[in-house]
Design a protein around this nucleic acid. Structure first.
Length: 433
RNA sequence: GGAGAGAUGGCUGAGUGGUUUAAGGCACACGCCUGGAAAGCGUGCGUAGGUAACACUACCGUGAGUUCAAAUCUCACUCUCUCCGCCA
């Protein structure tokens, strides 16, 4: 949520920044200003009436105390119809506020001034590359072939159980998934200073609204119902990312400045409907309805937001570096950034069998966009309440990391070598057919 | 699923229709005192809207209602706790 004061005072600036996203949301500003104006006018009017009513009621109370009932009755007549006027104006203000806030929730964040202008992925500036694409003396296979021959994933039975877009990891495949999760959690908690949390996997809609997934993208998530009770549908949703519960941990709280920065790290499965998305319905692990992810969340003072984002990016890169994987970092341009973000870096890992880079991490500074929606604040030493910056980053997403790993480390005989850092976790140095 | 109790500021806790603007305590901040501290004393201390600053307005779990006036009365709902049942 943007600051209504900013929209009120600098509407053209806000329109201009929104326009750089290229989705037309700047057109909502006019309606917001109109509703805001209606709300303020109604409030100004009704507050005068309420002040009158409060004053007269107090006088009536005093007269009743002195048993001057006739005078009290006269006063009652004076304020008789105030109540109806107040009710009507309150209603007007409330309606206008609802209209204003409904539109405000659909406005994305303003891109940070440093973010490159652009329309889509093709305009994303390359920040850096790390390592080299591995050389193969043979034609590298796709992860689908490797997973089948090594019996790491049973694609057909995954589909049998839950439909397309669901994976059944088997034997060493399941162990590799678990080893990667544990490896990343240990790295971030032991070496990067994050505190591990294990949040609920189902959350109420207020959490999705808090991070900006609702109301605009409501059709992309799984709502659940208890039993067959249709009335309960939509009270809880399967989380699309650990960001949803973890960023909301301190919602509606006033933290103290001393607590910041707060750094959380969480492993969770992630559930995404991906309605209409390309890739679902085909075989493979690149785009699925359920995948595992280790997520990083930071709550920081505004002045530290961008420095902390660089650190978080480095923390995520460290996963790929320590596993010996080639990757590149790109900065998302204004047209390609997510709804809540002011600035985002993507990390894309090289998948030799695919012959392409796969997005395994997205590191965003949402500034105070989410903390405003959640009403999460911190009290400065000076006693002022401020909205903190909230950052999220994948550290990293599984499935695709799994893909990159097996495709990168495949051997001519069809086996897959395990990089040294992971060997203590998997307790083997090679997967063989 | 059944029965009972409860929901008031950062915490605790009083407040059963009006003269209170939610008492008191704890915690916290500043000052006095002190060699320094503790204790003591004094001052301040919820959130938001609004104003140049005051004024003013709203908020006592949520939503309706009664009334000139609601933390207080009425109705509905939500959540929490205790006990019972079921259960990994």
């Amino acid at each position: 949520m943007l600051d209504i004061k900013l929209i009120r005072e600098r509407p053209d600036f806000v329109r201009q920044r929104l326009a750089t996203r290229g989705a037309g949301e700047e057109q909502l500003i006019e309606g917001i200003l109109l509703a805001d104006d209606q709300r303020r006018k109604a409030l100004a009017e009704v507050e005068i009436l309420k002040a009158t009513r409060n004053r007269v009621s107090k006088e009536i109370g005093a007269l009743m105390g002195q048993k001057k009932f006739a005078e009290a009755d006269a006063k009652k007549v004076e304020t008789k119809d105030l109540g109806d006027q107040i009710t009507a104006l309150d209603q007007q203000a409330k309606t206008a506020e609802g209209a204003r806030d409904g539109l405000m929730l659909r406005l994305p964040n303003l891109p940070h001034e440093s973010v490159a202008l652009g329309k889509g992925a093709a305009d994303n500036p390359l920040v850096r590359r790390h390592g080299e694409k591995p050389d193969f003396a043979f034609q590298p296979k796709s992860h689908v072939e490797l997973c089948e021959s090594l019996k790491l994933v049973d694609f057909a039975r995954g589909v049998k159980l839950s439909g397309s877009g669901f994976l059944l990891y088997t034997n060493w495949g399941a162990k590799l998934e678990r080893a990667l999760i544990q490896y990343m959690l240990d790295l971030h908690t032991r070496e990067h200073g994050y505190t591990e949390v294990a949040p609920p996997l189902m959350v109420g809609p207020q959490c999705l609204e808090g991070v900006g997934q609702f109301p605009k993208f409501k059709d992309q998530y799984y709502g659940v119902a208890e039993g067959n009770d249709a009335a309960k549908l939509g009270q809880l949703y399967l989380i699309p990312t650990a960001e949803t519960p973890v960023a909301n941990i301190h919602r509606e709280e006033i933290l103290s400045e001393k607590q910041l920065p707060i750094c959380y790290c969480a492993y969770t499965p992630c559930f995404r409907g991906e309605a209409g998305a390309a890739g679902v319905g085909t075989r493979g692990m690149i785009r699925v309805h359920q995948f595992d992810k280790v997520e990083l969340i930071k709550i920081v003072k505004p002045e530290d937001g961008y420095a902390e984002q660089e650190k978080m990016l480095a923390d995520a890169e460290r996963v790929l570096q320590s596993l010996g994987l080639h990757y590149r970092v790109v900065e998302l341009c204004t047209g390609d950034m997510g709804f809540a973000s002011a600035k985002t870096y993507d990390i894309e890992v090289w998948a030799a069998g695919q012959g392409s880079y796969l997005e395994v991490s997205s590191v965003s500074n949402c500034e105070d966009f989410q903390s405003r929606r959640m009403n999460m604040r911190f009290k400065t030493e000076a006693g002022e309440n401020k909205f903190p910056h909230i950052l999220n980053g994948s550290g990293t997403a599984l499935a695709r990391l799994f893909v990159a790993l097996v495709e990168t480390y495949q051997q001519v005989d069809g086996s897959v070598l395990i990089p040294p850092a992971l060997q203590p976790y998997l307790k083997t140095n090679q997967l063989v057919p």
